[in-house]
């Protein structure tokens, strides 16, 4: 990339999706999607089942490569880069179907989340050099801090697979936070939570946003989405249907028709 081009994208949004498309076999999961995500906001991504929300997450996190279009994160083109590299430059995620490390206890799960911010490898581990011992302690302290930030520090030594579902969701968020992300992608974090848990989740997401982390949130729970999101993008059958503040989106006739099932 030339310097001029680099200049042009400086001071741009944290994440820029530019005419991204993706097909699976015959299914066009995403067609020509573009939108920006600015630092420090909570942005919602909503749409009916099969709209392509998870697919978009998989493109941003590098699991799939877009067929077409560009994804720019923090002034770097990231389409086609490896998943683990993208975590290193600041993109973390949670999964629609919670994926925690079931054989480990809670604190270990969060310590794994710290992987990209630590570097002890094979030789460091076997020789137990002082810097490695220090790093290990930092990893532990940091994981503890995150657990208490999320509010589950008393679960630190519980086996993660034995936790109730709601806590597993929080654990997954804690693990994602451990990588010090700039951007956190949450795929239906409220699914399976009861009303109280959902409300608490809403507070937590705002608290995360307040620490300077930008959030992109896929969520079916409309009251949560409308309450905490600064902006919302609506997808339907792989196309972008609308974009705007929660108010604007709610009053959009096309959204009403396609998504909320209300005839405009």
């Amino acid at each position: 990339m030339s310097d001029r081009e680099q200049q042009k994208i400086n001071h741009n949004p944290l994440l820029k999706i530019e005419s991204v498309s993706k097909t699976f076999g015959g299914v066009q999961a995403l067609r020509n999607i573009s939108f920006d995500l600015h630092s420090g906001l909570i942005q919602g991504l909503i749409g009916p089942n099969g709209a392509g929300k998870t697919t978009l997450f998989n493109l941003i996190t590098g699991i799939y490569k877009p067929d077409d279009g560009r994804i720019i994160f923090d002034n770097q083109h990231i389409q086609g880069r490896q998943v683990h590299e993208l975590v290193r430059i600041g993109i973390a995620r949670t999964f629609q179907n919670v994926e925690i490390f079931g054989s480990m206890n809670v604190i270990e799960n969060v310590m794994v989340g710290r992987h990209v911010r630590s570097k002890c490898g094979f030789w460091g581990a076997v020789t137990r050099v002082p810097w490695m011992v220090r790093e290990e302690k930092n990893t532990f302290d940091n994981a503890m801090e995150i657990l208490s930030f999320v509010g589950i520090e008393e679960l630190a030594y519980r086996k993660s697979s034995e936790l109730p579902f709601g806590w597993q969701r929080l654990l997954e968020i804690a693990r994602a936070l451990a990588s010090n992300p700039k951007l956190l992608l949450l795929d239906e974090p409220a699914a399976g939570l009861n009303a109280t848990e959902t409300r608490q989740l809403g507070h937590l997401l705002k608290k995360i946003c307040a620490t300077g982390i930008t959030l992109l949130l896929v969520e079916h729970d409309m009251s949560l989405t409308m309450e905490i999101c600064d902006r919302i993008v609506v997808l339907d059958q792989g196309k972008k249907l609308a974009e705007g503040t929660p108010k604007e989106v709610q009053s959009d006739a096309a959204v009403m028709a396609a998504y909320l099932g209300v005839e405009g």
Partner: peptide, 18 residues
């Protein structure tokens, strides 16, 4: 820890940057 993470879920292991 990374090895055990891979054992539990390779997808999640990748997603935490391993």
């Amino acid at each position: 820890r990374a090895l055990r993470a891979i054992h539990d879920s390779e997808n999640a292991a990748k997603a935490v940057g391993i």
